[in-house]
Computed example of a mutant assay.
Amino acid sequence: MRLVAGWANQMRNFPLFRPIILSMLMASYLAFGASVFQLIEQPIEHRLQEKVDHLKAVFLEKHPCITGQ
């Protein structure tokens, strides 16, 4: 009794089939992990950027001889 379909049997004869599938799975796993990490860290990053911008504005007010570039 054969449990493997005809196209799957042909794919097994292709020597790069398994590394290509594993590479695609690894890339999708990494992309998913990166998107989850970005969603978790995004609010913290925005608050930190606002704080840095505020500190920069205060510093530039106290030191008018320095440009804001």
Rank of each mutant, 00 (worst) to 15 (best):
R47P: 03
E61W: 01
G33C: 15
C65R: 03
A31S: 12
E50I: 00
T67D: 13
E45K: 12
S35R: 07
L30V: 14
E41S: 05
L30R: 11
P43C: 09
Q42T: 13
T67Q: 12
V36L: 15
A34W: 10
A27G: 11
A34Q: 06
R47S: 14
S35N: 11
D53S: 14
F37I: 05
L60E: 03
I44W: 06
H63M: 02
Q38E: 05
Q38Y: 08
H63Q: 03
L30I: 14
G33W: 13
I44Y: 11
V52F: 07
V52Q: 13
A27Y: 04
E45C: 04
K56R: 11
F59V: 02
L30A: 08
Q49W: 03
I66S: 03
G33V: 10
I44S: 13
L60C: 03
A34I: 09
Q42R: 15
K62A: 02
F37E: 04
H54E: 08
E41N: 05
H54S: 08
P43G: 05
L39M: 13
V36Q: 13
E41L: 07
F32G: 12
G68H: 03
E41I: 02
L60Y: 01
V58H: 01
S35P: 00
L60S: 01
S35C: 11
A57L: 01
Q49H: 10
E41R: 04
A34R: 08
S28G: 06
A27E: 04
Q49D: 11
F59L: 09
A31V: 07
A27C: 10
A34C: 12
F37M: 14
A57W: 02
L48D: 06
D53K: 13
V58C: 04
Q38G: 09
K51Y: 02
C65N: 09
L39C: 05
P43I: 09
F37C: 08
L39Y: 08
K56M: 10
T67M: 06
D53L: 13
Q42L: 15
K62I: 00
F59T: 04
G68W: 04
E61I: 01
Q42G: 12
L30N: 08
Q49T: 04
E61H: 06
Y29V: 15
H63F: 05
K51W: 01
R47T: 12
Q49M: 08
A34Y: 08
F59S: 05
A34P: 03
D53W: 03
L30H: 06
P64R: 14
L55T: 04
Q42M: 12
L39Q: 10
A31N: 06
G33L: 15
E45Q: 09
K62W: 00
E45A: 11
Q42C: 11
P43F: 09
L55Y: 07
V58Y: 02
A57T: 03
V52E: 13
V52H: 08
K51D: 01
I40C: 07
K62Y: 02
C65T: 06
Q49Y: 01
L39A: 14
Y29M: 15
L48H: 07
Q49V: 03
L39G: 11
H46G: 04
K62S: 02
F37G: 09
Q49P: 00
K62V: 00
E50D: 12
G33R: 15
L30F: 09
F32W: 11
D53Y: 04
Q38K: 12
V58I: 10
A57N: 04
H46A: 14
D53T: 08
S35W: 13
K56S: 03
H46M: 09
K51S: 10
